[in-house]
Simulated assay, not measured.
Amino acid sequence: MTWNLPNILTLIRLLAAPGVAVMFLYFTRPYADWFALVLFVSAAITDWFDGYLARTWKQETKLGAMLDPIADKAMVVIALMVIIGFSSWSPWLVLPSTVILFREVFVSGLREFLGDVAGTLKVTKLAKWKTTFQMIAIAVLFSQGVFEHYLGMSVFGMDQTMVDDIMAGREEDVLGLGWKLMGMEWAGRIGLMLLWIAAALTAITGIDYFIKAMPHLREGR
């Protein structure tokens, strides 16, 4: 095994994946959301950085090629699990997440079954875009949790009449309820839109990989 800097960064990203979930075990919200967001974004940045370094320094290795997709899938799967677990289980969130999770498991199983000919399923540019949209969507959805809980902290102790008066402009918005609510709503909308785009790209790339693998799945070959 070759432990160069790109591979070390990939390993750190892999180890950071469960850390996203651990944040919600040891910290209260919105601090857990903040820590998870920062950890996830940092890991997503290393995803680009380690690949760039490996190509630039000509340090691409079999170890890196193996760890990189595993780290990406671990980050996405665990982050989606956390987001769904702390959400209202809206079908608009659950459905695209299910497509993404199913495809990742399916393609991983397909690669394992193909064994030596798994190189047939090389990562395509569309698959890289799929991963990019997944990462951005998840980061935006984590930011929604930050806005939501800061809003909840701000309205704590207020009755509904006071909240309604502030939102309607009849009372001064000293605590910034308006921009916190707007941030929460827009982060939710944009995050869901990006997640659906990611799910569509995920499904397309999954079908593409399955078609490429078909010749190797036929009996007698």
Rank of each mutant, 00 (worst) to 15 (best):
M184G: 15
R103V: 08
M167I: 14
L80I: 09
A79I: 01
S97N: 06
E104T: 00
A187F: 15
K125N: 12
L121M: 09
D165H: 10
K122H: 14
L114N: 01
W89A: 10
A118S: 11
P69V: 02
S97K: 02
V105N: 00
E171S: 14
I197A: 09
R170M: 06
A79R: 04
I84E: 04
W196H: 13
M66K: 09
T98H: 10
V94N: 04
V94R: 04
A79P: 00
S88E: 13
L121D: 09
F106E: 05
L177W: 12
Y150T: 10
E104D: 02
R103N: 07
A127Y: 06
K130W: 03
W89V: 08
I190N: 05
A118Q: 03
L121G: 05
P69L: 04
G115D: 06
P91E: 08
M81I: 14
A79M: 05
W196Y: 09
L181F: 15
L151I: 13
L181I: 14
E112Q: 11
S88P: 07
E171T: 10
L95I: 10
W129N: 02
D164Y: 04
I83L: 10
L195C: 07
G152Y: 04
M66I: 13
K128T: 12
Q144R: 12
Q144A: 14
F147Y: 15
A71Y: 02
K128L: 07
L192S: 08
